[in-house]
Amino acid sequence: MPQLIPFFFFNQLLFSFIILFSIVYIFSKYILPLFTFQQVVRIYITKLSKKN
């Protein structure tokens, strides 16, 4: 039944969405804030050491 062929890709589609959303979540929650944190800390310690 050739009309059923698209449904065989449902598996792939479902998993790609799951992985995509989990990657977005992990990056936005755990990885990318570290970069902002690093920038803030860099600015902070340069401001501290620039007092002379």
């Binding site: 804030p33 902002t36 920038q39």
Partner: peptide
């Protein structure tokens, strides 16, 4: 600093001005 970064991120501010 950690708290400040958390609030920045929650407000969608990902960059530091002047960096």
């Amino acid at each position: 600093i950690i708290e400040a970064v958390a609030t920045m991120v929650s407000k969608g501010k990902w960059t530091v001005p002047g960096y």
